[in-house]
């Protein structure tokens, strides 16, 4: 086994991990903290990727900038979606089964709509950092991986700051622990959850822009991220942002190693295998309480 091959696999796995953290952070918020099983989250990531692609091709906007432009709209849409979800499912307390089926349906509505608008061809964006690489001796780091890595970690860090330092952020953490207690101290759990879900959908927009930087996209790709996002969320301990980053890195490295040493055809099984092992051995995840 050559050291170089191993080192490159490790490096690309870690870089991928930073991007995966951005993919999963929305699930950590929605599923881990708010108890909303948004299985359509990966479809929203694809929607974000196509919005970034569209802004890039039509207006020449940098994908990252495009994400920043579109994120507020995603936030508002997310708030609206939560309001609907709450009114229809949470209030009837039918959120578990019916809500799951609802998001499952939404997943396909978004995916097929993208398919009808953009077709099945692979789409890609242009940006100055797509193409060149940074090289140190035997190791090379393509910028198209480095930029999403840094941006992904940046997004998670900003969310951690927001949750830890602001009033609404702390209220979100409170609602994830005990909505009843939040109500007792005068907070409105529904309003807080609405803001948090908006944030979750906004991160999907950003993750989509990072995805389109990393690789060309097509609408049905989102499904690959269902397993990844949920595996990271569960492995990271559901509500922990640090756990999300660490679990993202673990999954990234595991996938890179599998692709390098076993074969790319086994790739899809890695995230789900990791998920099943976590669920069977330690359902509370590595950072779980």
């Amino acid at each position: 086994m050559s050291m170089e091959l191993f080192g490159n696999a490790l490096l690309s796995g870690l870089l991928l991990g930073g991007f995966y953290a951005a993919v999963a952070v929305g699930i950590t918020i929605a599923f881990g903290m708010l108890d909303i099983v948004n299985i359509a989250h990966p479809a929203f990531i694809m929607l974000g990727a196509f919005v970034a692609y569209w802004l890039n091709v039509e207006y020449g906007l940098d994908p990252l900038l495009a994400a920043l432009v579109a994120a507020p709209f995603a936030y508002i849409a997310g708030r609206g979606l939560y309001r609907y979800y709450h009114g229809v499912f949470e209030r009837r307390s039918e959120d578990s089964l019916q809500g799951l089926a609802f998001f499952f349906g939404l997943l396909f509505v978004v995916e097929v709509s993208l398919l009808l608008v953009f077709g099945v061809d692979y789409r890609f964006v242009s940006a100055p950092y797509i193409g060149p690489s940074l090289t140190f001796g035997d190791y090379s780091v393509p910028y198209r991986m480095l930029v999403p890595f840094l941006a992904g970690l940046g997004v998670v860090a900003l969310i951690a700051l927001y949750l830890g330092r602001t009033f609404t952020g702390r209220a979100i953490l409170a609602v994830s622990q005990d909505p009843g207690a939040l109500r007792l101290v005068g907070g409105n759990p529904v309003k807080i959850k609405e803001a948090a879900f908006g944030l979750s959908i906004a991160t999907a927009m950003l993750a989509g822009a990072l995805l389109v930087i990393i690789q060309p996209i097509e609408p049905s790709m989102g499904r690959e991220f269902i397993g990844r996002a949920f595996a990271i969320c569960v492995l990271g301990g559901m509500t922990s942002l640090l756990g999300t980053v660490v679990a993202g890195a673990i999954l990234g490295v595991a996938e890179a190693m599998t692709t390098t040493y076993v074969g790319a055809a086994w790739g899809p099984a890695v995230s789900f295998g990791l998920l099943l092992i976590t669920l069977a051995v330690r359902p509370s995840g590595i950072f779980g309480r």
């Binding site: 499912f89 019916q98 809500g99 349906g105 939404l106 396909f108």
Partner: peptide, 16 residues
Amino acid sequence: SANLLIVGLLLVVFTS
């Protein structure tokens, strides 16, 4: 591909 769209929409509408 319209099939999937129909089913997705029906699922969203009926669960709601």
